[in-house]
């Protein structure tokens, strides 16, 4: 499936240029973190790579057939989208879509409920659990399918330290199991903790792609330096 190669990506929304042109390459096992100010195009880049945003120009290429790649990637949204079903049914849903037997889907969902400490709420409607629990559930619902590629759009935005810690542990463990991650975040601390590579984006353009170690010591763009220093980028 890897590498993922994006060439000359351009995205427009209602006639307004929001992203690109962007060229990048993502290798297996990477934890790529997209950093950038509000409205810089982080979400658009993730959605364009995942294929849920129509491209104006350019292409996204996986080293396998598109029909194969779409089934091996998942996306976790900034605001978790919960199906109007129970917590348990939210977990079994993607497995049932993939024709996994009911018995196996139930077994895997039960295991994941234990891992995210939501066993006690398994029959509760997913829309009624807390924001942090929803985000953990959304992540578990993505990981239960054992995706090779996971896109996350600011998965810990507005979450407390404890939940952020739990989510980061889940992400690290899924990378150990062979999943490649590309995520956006505002949190520089989180980027330092998780990232192997940093993609700094500003005004729809990728200004630098560097290893995390290098990026935080010697960023290759002025705006990235300002961003790390906490200055306002104009």
């Amino acid at each position: 499936m890897f590498p993922l190669v994006a060439e000359n990506l351009v995205v427009e929304f209602q006639g307004k240029h929001v992203l690109g042109p962007v060229d990048l390459r993502l290798d297996k096992g990477d934890i790529a973190v997209i950093l950038g100010p509000n409205g810089s195009g982080k979400t658009s880049l993730l959605k364009a790579l995942h294929g849920i945003l129509k491209l104006k120009l350019g292409m996204v290429r996986w080293s396998c057939l598109e029909t194969e790649s779409v089934g091996k990637q998942m996306f976790v949204f900034q605001t978790p989208i919960m199906l109007r079903r129970s917590v348990f049914e939210n977990l079994t849903y993607p497995l049932r879509l993939r024709k996994v037997s009911k018995a196996e889907a139930n077994q895997r969902a039960t295991e994941w409920l234990d891992r995210i400490a939501l066993s006690a709420s398994m029959q509760v409607p997913a829309t009624r659990i807390s924001g942090g629990e929803k985000q953990k559930l959304a992540l578990a619902r993505a990981l239960i399918t054992e995706p090779e590629m996971l896109f996350l759009d600011e998965p810990c935005a507005a979450l407390d330290g404890k939940t952020t810690n739990e989510i980061e542990s889940m992400l690290q463990s899924c990378v150990e199991n062979g999943t490649t991650i590309m995520m956006s975040t505002h949190d520089i601390g989180q980027a330092k903790r998780l990232a192997k590579n940093i993609y700094f984006i500003n005004k729809g353009k990728l200004e630098c792609i560097q290893s995390a170690k290098t990026f935080f010591v010697k960023p290759s763009s002025i705006n990235a330096s300002k961003f790390i220093a906490g200055d306002i980028i104009e």
Partner: peptide, 11 residues
């Protein structure tokens, strides 16, 4: 509500 999720799950 569901649009992005169901599209992203390739349903």
């Amino acid at each position: 509500d569901y649009h992005d999720l169901l599209i992203s799950m390739n349903t």
